[in-house]
Design a protein around this nucleic acid. Structure first.
Lengths: 178, 178
DNA sequence: GTTACCATGTAACGTGTTACATGATTCC
DNA sequence: GGAATCATGTAACACGTTACATGGTAAC
């Protein structure tokens, strides 16, 4: 569960209302993450209860009953803790992307170890898929087998994509200058 | 919701017990789909209630209290209906993969139109990402910007992968021979 | 005035996850 | 006899989705 961390990251980039967050989740964050406005309001209420954020009622003339949320120190600390915790599983690329956006604002927090670990898992899975491909999809195949092969090919291509992306990313993460 | 259709497909490939399905979901289907045994038992019970499948108690000597599920005609018809229904959204690649495995056993059911439609959506999204890349990530970037760029790069690479995979798949789907 | 958009919420429901619970068989 | 595996389920909870509900502001 890390929609809360995605919201914290987004609020650090720009304090805003629940409505504004929902819109931004359809844009910059929404490239890879979606959340309905109901989810967002629910999580904002919980985080306000935990003193991770607070809401300032915006009563300016042109505003309706708008609440502007800001991240409190406890929320900041929690975000740092989460970004640093190396508990990502192989299927949590979305969480890694949130961590990268968080690192871009409050970092550097040393994410390259986590990326290296995940890359190892993806490498393993790719090797596993390739064994299956060699074993079950060699030579002339009939149409059903070629369709099953296509399903496996998607897995192979996704893993290759992940690894090629990580190869682009790691030099950026490990660059101490700039 | 289509865990039921994934189960129907898996049962057509090989009638088996809930336990057996759970294991196969960790293997051949599990390349791209996961379901816990609780989910599987729940859905099997529902599908049995709808007469999509029935369970034959296996009382052979070496068996414990094993139930072997088989797809009934109503389940078969429902699977065909679902595979043919062109209601996939851009993020439902997993469902498309299930449809491909279903088509491999009970097809051909004319999936290439659905793939073409999805390819159009992925092409659009890729174009959108590339506009953002041109607009926001040109020239010399500092580290935070390069990290945000990496997040967008993942989106771009995933879309490119999807389209390249579809280009492999379509000739297979549209091959009337074999 | 009416449409579109801004803005915040509640309620109900369905699905997914985690924990609990049981018991048989096979292998060492 | 004990551990691993086969095999099926229930219960509680968390999360996500859909529908419902309200009302203000801005533009035409």
């Amino acid at each position: 569960m890390s929609i809360q961390h995605a919201l914290l990251t987004s609020l650090l980039e720009q304090p805003s209302s629940g409505y504004g967050l929902a819109q931004r989740f359809d844009r910059s964050f929404g490239y890879f993450w979606q959340a309905s406005h109901q989810q967002i309001y629910r999580e904002l209420a919980r985080m306000a209860g935990a003193c991770w954020v607070d809401a300032e009622q915006d009563d300016s003339a042109s505003a309706r009953r708008r609440k502007v949320y800001r991240v409190l120190p406890a929320g900041y600390d929690e975000l740092v803790r989460w970004v640093k915790s190396p508990d990502l599983t192989i299927d949590q690329t979305q969480s890694l992307l949130v961590k990268l956006r968080a690192d871009a604002i409050i970092g550097p927090l040393g994410l390259s170890d986590q990326v290296h670990t995940l890359a190892g898992l993806h490498q393993e899975r790719l090797a596993f898929y390739r064994v299956i491909e060699q074993r079950d999809f060699q030579g002339d195949l009939d149409k059903p087998q070629r369709l099953r092969h296509a399903v496996l090919r998607m897995g192979i291509k996704q893993e290759e994509t992940w690894l090629s992306w990580a190869a682009e990313l790691l030099p950026v993460l490990e660059d101490d200058a700039s």
